[in-house]
């Protein structure tokens, strides 16, 4: 029975993408007509550094099965160092997730440049698959509270 449940499970993934690189990569993936899982719902921010801990936790508490934060490659941030800060906050968040008994794998940070349409598709599809295997967000299932 459990099997079936997992197979029907369509993960809900929120993708916080930086405007300058990854959002452009997502567009390029579209222009190249790549197949991408409808699991992802993109929310555009100007820079990956905009993402604060609260937002991520609220997103998980709201029921996201996975969250992808993606921005410019290190050194490429449109605002110079934003993505380094994002990386630091991400590392901290991973720890916080552990204490919440949420598998840290549910949160992913990727650097995807504007030319990497293909990689964007691969990252999203692989992440979806991983989340599918992890199953639904336990908080969502009320098993946490």
């Amino acid at each position: 029975m459990g099997e079936v449940k997992i197979n029907n499970f369509k993960p809900k993934i929120v993708g916080y993408l930086c405007n300058w690189c990854t959002y452009a990569a997502a567009d390029l993936a579209g222009a190249s007509r790549l197949d991408i899982k409808p699991s992802i719902n993109v929310i555009r921010v100007m820079c990956s550094s905009r993402i604060d801990q609260n937002l991520i936790l609220t997103t998980f508490f709201g029921g996201a099965d996975g969250i992808l934060i993606a921005g410019c490659h290190p050194g490429d941030c449109h605002y110079d160092k934003g993505n380094y800060y994002a990386r630091r906050r991400y590392a901290l968040l991973k720890k916080v997730l552990e204490t919440l008994k949420l598998d840290p794998e549910r949160l992913q940070l990727s650097w995807i440049s504007a030319a990497e349409g293909k990689r964007y598709a691969t990252v999203v599809n692989e992440f979806t698959e991983r989340i599918r295997k992890l199953g639904p967000n336990p908080i969502n299932n009320n098993s946490y509270f």
């Binding site: 820079c47 550094s49 800060y85 906050r89």
Partner: peptide
């Protein structure tokens, strides 16, 4: 300010 939002991401008091 250029509006990157980094400060917002960093502020512990929201």
């Amino acid at each position: 300010c250029r509006g990157c939002g980094n400060c917002m991401g960093s502020c512990p008091s929201g």
